[in-house]
Design a protein around this nucleic acid. Sequence first.
DNA 1: TTGAAAGCGCTAACAA
DNA 2: TTGTTAGCGCTTTCAA
Lengths: 338, 338
Amino acid sequence: MAKGSVTSGDVARRANVSQSAVSRAFSPGASVSDQTRKRVLDAAKELGYRPNAIARAMISGRSRLIAILVAYLDNQFYPVVLEQMSRALQDRGYQVLLFMTDPGNQDQVVQKMLQYQVEGIVMASATLSSSLARECASTGTPVVLFNRYVPSSPTSSVTSDNIEGARQLAHFLDAGGHRRIVFIAGHEDSSTSRDREAGFHKGLAECGRALFGRSVGGYSFDGAARAARELFGGRDRPDAVFVANDHMAFSVMDVLRGELKLRIPEDVSVVGYDDVPEAGWAGYNLTTVTQPSGPMVEAAVSILIEQVENRVVDKRAAVLPARLVVRGSARLPRPPAG
Amino acid sequence: MAKGSVTSGDVARRANVSQSAVSRAFSPGASVSDQTRKRVLDAAKELGYRPNAIARAMISGRSRLIAILVAYLDNQFYPVVLEQMSRALQDRGYQVLLFMTDPGNQDQVVQKMLQYQVEGIVMASATLSSSLARECASTGTPVVLFNRYVPSSPTSSVTSDNIEGARQLAHFLDAGGHRRIVFIAGHEDSSTSRDREAGFHKGLAECGRALFGRSVGGYSFDGAARAARELFGGRDRPDAVFVANDHMAFSVMDVLRGELKLRIPEDVSVVGYDDVPEAGWAGYNLTTVTQPSGPMVEAAVSILIEQVENRVVDKRAAVLPARLVVRGSARLPRPPAG
DNA sequence: TTGAAAGCGCTAACAA
DNA sequence: TTGTTAGCGCTTTCAA
């Protein structure tokens, strides 16, 4: 087998230097003379030498591998984040080890990550159980939760200001004259869904209103459709719905328009959260709240890499501002009279 | 630093066996007595031992790492594929090293992959230059091109039957009574776009028709919008458009309905290719051709893993059947008279 | 079935 | 600046 067969020893022999000289020539900042470096580089090029990152990882204890864990990629928010995060990590000289998880096998997946000596972990879905968090901590591997957090856990997290974003949504809907406002949650145990609901409640309360109803969509397309049918199936129809994320909001809009023959926003207003690309598409034109994926990714990467490079793991929580994006799926507030 | 500090030596000492016994206890199919294995496993559990996959990779020459290269994740076809492929690979005991590329830095990215001793490469976008292909071949690393191919290259590939799928689309449009049919290409140099165009031409020719016009969308949302404006801006408006993929088709539909105030399918029919999830959403309800992502992923993984495990690299080309999916974005053929 | 010993390809002291 | 020398944690002969 021709398994990457050319080694630093081969290059050394060819360049008439020691094997460590070869190593140095390929280590930025090592002390080599220009002459030696050139000799080595030339020999390396002739032989087609490529440093073995695995061997390097083993001896140096630095794999430059970051694990990213995601549960699903059908909500466009995550592909966008994954793309940005991979690029950001690559730019800093790290490689991404990607893991897909199901609710069940998360333990195994984290074991695999640790076996591969990853230097850091980003969990973009599925929350770390406390035992796994402890295990990561014991190996000194920093972890960042992305778009979620666990209040009781010492794990760092990056989120948008879900409470404030949802609060703005509530004010916007109230100003639009809506009176029967309902909410469709993601998962009951998701910090993101809970915060969005709490902020929404708070905003409504500030306007002297309360939620007219609620249901749970489980972050899935079908679940959201069921929730919509449930909330809009009765006599006393809501006049606005806040759906915990855009992905579910599209499904809700489909049910409202397709099955229930309601017009949006004339008969009912729909607002979401995330501002995924499809929200801007004319077919949905969804009023929503932007989660700033770019800054969120930057924050996650900075927090992680800083902890990796300084070998200190501590809890950091970044909360980035969220911004209301008014499009056409919700009735607009009337301009002030007079 | 507590860097995964417990090693097989530690476990060996604790279990009162040799270090190689520990290795064997963790190698499926190695010859160890049940008694020894149990002793080792118990000791390992007590110490929290986790085999070091990096060290294992180094000595065995098997990293169990597969690189997946993608250029963008905003066309939903790719996230879906990435998710399925990661799961399939994980199920077979391989891990995914994810690389995002730009047109420019592809060489560097492939170098990185090779440095990490990946055992195989999937290129889900961006085609391998011939020099890179040669480099991979020289290290014995199998490569599979996904949803693309290079006729002159010895690299394996997996595609759907783009020619036949597009041919069916042509017949469908002809049967629907369309007479001014245009095409919006992806990239001119993409095998997928070229095959779809060729199949479409062929189908039209079989019906005694020819293309009424064409433009290029470059696979981007904005590019597709421009192409739509160009083709539909003149007096002699097309009555149907085949867009080379769904992602661009959504953009085209937005322009047609939003800017040009055309009704779909009453004024103009739109068909796409891929059948991404959004194509089924009521807001678009796009008639398209299904690329069977599941079977395509299975084929790609089988081809790759077979070559990895048998250490033979040869060119294999899988072409999976594509199927027309009739939804509501194109006028339907009239039922035969009589 | 088991243990001893020899490395995988490289980095990191340590001398020179 | 350079070469020599130890290993990193593991798998894999080879004998016993």
